[in-house]
């Protein structure tokens, strides 16, 4: 791995942010909007006495972390789509840049964006709803890591699908988290799901992370069990995503799709 090539990928997206206002609004707009909506809901429930103590922390904490996961996964895939839209894919493929370097660059820039977006959402929650997310941050960092790795796996898979099936399936970039969300138990415990959905839910790292979050917020301490389960599942999904990407990329090369991707 060469640092200059990773830096070049970061530099490309820094220039992009300088010229494209929508890249900046994507980073800040959605996380903040999510928190505003969930904040009003919790206020409404609290005023009518329907909110048991601690639930506001579950809801807003979960909204902040889900926003972070969704933005990270989406931005990874959009970063690649930006190369597709500008017909820059083959230009990059004809340089010494390796896939690992490219992904490292994307990870660095999108991690930064996710941190900025999450910090903005947490700040809005603090200023407008007096919900302080920051005391939980240290205990939640391992679960945030679980979410980021899963976001990376989903981003790699979506990128592979775009390489193979071109932009015909680019809407997947924005919709795939919607598919995962009901199974991820973001705002409710696994026990709230019908029996047939529970094994599927438990097979997702997101579920393990949000169950872990609820335990921390409820004062039940840190769940190592949830963390190890989340990390193990992350490993499986990441390996599967990398293998799928490899197969999809090879298939695109055989079919000559890399030069026609748009």
């Amino acid at each position: 791995m060469r640092l200059n090539r990773i830096a070049a990928v970061i530099e490309r997206h820094v220039y992009d942010a300088k010229h494209n206002l929508e890249r900046v609004t994507d980073t800040l707009y959605w996380p903040v909007m999510d928190i505003i909506v969930w904040g009003f809901l919790t206020l409404f429930l609290a005023r009518h006495g329907n909110l048991r103590p601690g639930l506001i922390s579950f809801l807003l904490g979960a909204a902040i972390l889900w926003g972070m996961f969704r933005a990270f996964q989406r931005d990874l895939a959009v970063s690649f789509l930006a190369e597709v839209w500008s017909h820059n894919v083959i230009g990059l493929l004809a340089t010494p840049l390796t896939l690992r370097e490219y992904l490292s660059g994307l990870l660095a820039i999108n991690l930064l964006k996710a941190i900025v977006g999450t910090a903005a959402a947490a700040l809005v929650a603090l200023l407008f709803y007096s919900y302080d997310f920051f005391p939980y941050l240290i205990a939640l960092l391992p679960f945030i890591f679980v979410l980021m790795i899963f976001g990376l796996a989903v981003g790699i898979l979506v990128t592979g699908l775009i390489v193979r099936y071109t932009t015909k399936i680019q809407s997947f970039t924005w919709s795939i988290t919607g598919l995962i969300m009901p199974f991820s138990c973001v705002f409710y415990p696994v026990s709230a799901l019908p029996g047939w959905m529970q094994p599927l839910a438990l097979a997702l790292p997101t579920t393990q992370a949000f169950e872990g979050l609820r335990q921390v917020v409820a004062g039940g301490g840190f769940s190592w069990e949830r963390l190890w389960a989340g990390l193990a599942l992350d490993g499986v999904y990441l390996l599967a995503a990398v293998a799928s990407f490899d197969a999809l990329f090879r298939s695109a090369r055989v079919r000559g799709l890399l030069v026609r991707i748009e």
Partner: peptide, 24 residues
């Protein structure tokens, strides 16, 4: 190749700076 484009919103200089960095 005419198949190879550049990010449209970036300037000529920025695009070439990125490629120059990729080539070290």
């Amino acid at each position: 190749s005419p198949y190879a484009g550049f990010p449209n919103r970036l300037t000529v200089f920025e695009n070439l700076m990125i490629y120059a960095r990729l080539y070290g």
